[in-house]
C-alpha cells in the first residue's frame, strides 16, 4: 500500500522531535519513495514499525539517515557544466581573488569534488584553492574522505570525463591509484579538501566563498525549503562569487533570483551581484 502524505508528515514530525533532524519540508513524492524503500530493505510493514525500530535501537538512526537520503552521484556529471567551470568560472575567480574558496554543499561520496580537483589541477590553480565539502550523511562522507570510485561505476565516469575533455594529456588514471575497492584518488589531491558534516536545513551556512555548488540536493526539498537554502547559499558568497545548482533546477521562483546575474543559463551558474 502507498504511504499517505499524512502518515509521512506524522513520521517526519516524530523524527524531528526524537532526533532533531528536520525532514518536514522535503518533497513528498521522492521522500515517499525513500521511505517505502527503507521498509522493503529492512522487511518492515509500516512506518509504525520503522518508528519502533528507531526508538528501540538508537544506533539504527545513522543507517536510516544514509538510506533516506539519495546519494547517487557521478564524476563530471553534465560534462558541459564542467567545461564552463574550466573555461570561464575558475579563470574569472582566479583573476579576482588571491585565494579561491569553494564549497560543495551536499557532496555525497565526493565525485563532484574529485572532478573539481582535476579541473583545478588542469588550470594550475590547486595551490591557491581551499575546498570545503559537506553533507548531512556521515556514512557517505566516510566514502568521500577515502576518495574511492568503485570499479563497477568506472564506465560512466570515464565517459563523462572524455566528453568533458576529449584530448586530455592527463588521463583520468593520472589522478588515481588502484586499490582493492576501486580507484583511489591520490592523497596529494584529497588533502586539499576538508570534508565536514553539515546540515543545510538547520545549520547556518559556512561563509566567505568564491564558488558554492549545491547540485541535485534541493530537488529533494519543497519550494519553501528550496527558497530558505538558496538564501543561505547567497549569504555564504562574497560579492561577485558564483553559485552553481543542478542543470534541471531553477531559482526562478525564489526571492533571491534578483540578487544574482545569470552567468550561464544552460548550466545554471549565477553570480552574486547584490548583498
Amino acid at each position: 500500500m502507498d504511504l499517505t502524505t499524512l502518515e509521512i508528515n506524522l513520521f517526519t514530525e516524530f523524527i524531528f522531535d526524537s532526533f532533531g533532524y528536520d525532514f518536514r519540508n522535503y518533497a513528498i513524492p521522492s521522500f515517499r519513495r525513500r521511505l517505502s524503500r527503507i521498509l522493503e530493505l529492512f522487511s518492515l510493514n509500516s512506518l509504525f514499525d520503522l518508528k519502533n525500530l528507531l526508538k528501540k535501537e538508537k544506533s539504527f538512526f545513522s543507517e536510516f539517515l544514509s538510506e533516506v537520503t539519495v546519494n547517487v552521484t557521478e564524476m563530471f556529471r553534465d560534462p558541459s557544466f564542467w567545461e564552463e567551470v574550466y573555461t570561464t568560472v575558475l579563470p574569472k575567480i582566479s583573476s579576482q581573488s588571491e585565494v579561491i574558496k569553494i564549497w560543495h554543499a551536499g557532496c555525497s561520496s565526493g565525485e563532484e569534488v574529485f572532478s573539481m580537483l582535476i579541473v583545478l589541477d588542469k588550470l594550475g590553480l590547486l595551490e591557491k584553492t581551499k575546498i570545503v565539502a559537506t553533507d548531512i550523511d556521515e556514512e557517505i562522507l566516510k566514502n568521500a574522505k577515502e576518495g574511492i570510485i568503485s570499479y563497477r561505476n568506472l564506465d560512466h565516469n570515464y565517459l563523462n570525463f572524455n566528453t568533458f575533455d576529449p584530448d586530455s594529456t592527463r588521463r583520468l588514471d593520472y589522478y588515481f591509484e588502484k586499490s582493492k575497492k576501486g580507484l583511489k584518488m591520490k592523497q596529494e589531491y584529497l588533502e586539499k579538501v576538508s570534508f565536514i558534516k553539515h546540515n543545510l536545513v538547520s545549520e547556518d551556512p559556512l561563509s566567505n566563498f568564491d564558488l558554492v555548488l549545491c547540485r541535485n540536493v534541493m530537488i529533494y526539498f519543497d519550494e519553501i525549503l528550496q527558497d530558505k537554502v538558496l538564501q543561505k547559499m547567497h549569504k555564504s558568497l562574497y560579492i561577485n562569487g558564483y553559485m552553481a545548482i543542478g542543470t534541471k533546477e531553477s531559482i526562478m521562483w525564489s526571492g533571491i533570483a534578483n540578487k544574482f546575474d545569470v552567468e550561464n543559463y544552460e548550466e545554471k551558474i549565477y553570480r552574486k551581484t547584490t548583498l
Binding site: T5, A27, P29, R33, V70, V72, I219, Y220
Partner: peptide
C-alpha cells in the same frame, strides 16, 4: 532524472538509482 508528479501537478525530479 526520474520525474515524479504530485497532487498539485507539480513536477519533482530525482537522481535516485
Amino acid at each position: 532524472y526520474h520525474l515524479l508528479i504530485d497532487e498539485k501537478k507539480t513536477i519533482h525530479l530525482s537522481t535516485e538509482e
